[in-house]
């Protein structure tokens, strides 16, 4: 079971954590909602729960709950620019299909 991050992603996460001033790391997760079944969660982490798994990648702590890990195993978090827009992208090998915008997906 593993989650990874591209250098671009870790660089931005580090920067955002610094500007926020506090925080343990970032949380990746999934929850059921959205137009195509599931939606990604991407949040700062202040408190780690007992059951959470923590991955150290590129110097950033990724926190993930065991249930989400089933859906996200093998995912690589990337940071991309598309025109003027920029942001994080989940490269998730488990996804079968996603809605047009990619904000929600199916396994």
């Amino acid at each position: 079971m593993a989650i990874t991050m591209t250098p671009a992603a870790s660089q931005h996460v580090t920067k955002y954590l610094e500007s926020r001033g506090h925080g343990y790391g970032i949380r990746l997760g999934v929850r059921t909602s959205g137009c195509s079944g599931m939606a990604y969660v991407l949040e700062f982490v202040d408190d780690v729960a007992d059951e959470d798994e923590v991955f150290d990648t590129e110097g950033v702590r990724i926190v993930i709950d065991p249930k989400s890990l089933l859906y996200l195993d093998g995912t690589e978090l990337d940071f991309v620019k598309e025109g003027l827009n920029e942001g994080f992208k989940f490269n998730n090998p488990n996804v079968k299909n996603e809605c047009g915008c990619g904000e929600s997906f199916n396994i």
């Binding site: 991407l42 982490v45 598309e82």
Partner: peptide, 17 residues
């Protein structure tokens, strides 16, 4: 694919919201 931003703990928005 829509690009995501990091939210505050517990504040992840619903898709399209």
């Amino acid at each position: 694919m829509a690009l995501l931003q990091i939210a505050e703990p517990g504040q992840s928005p619903e898709p399209h919201q």
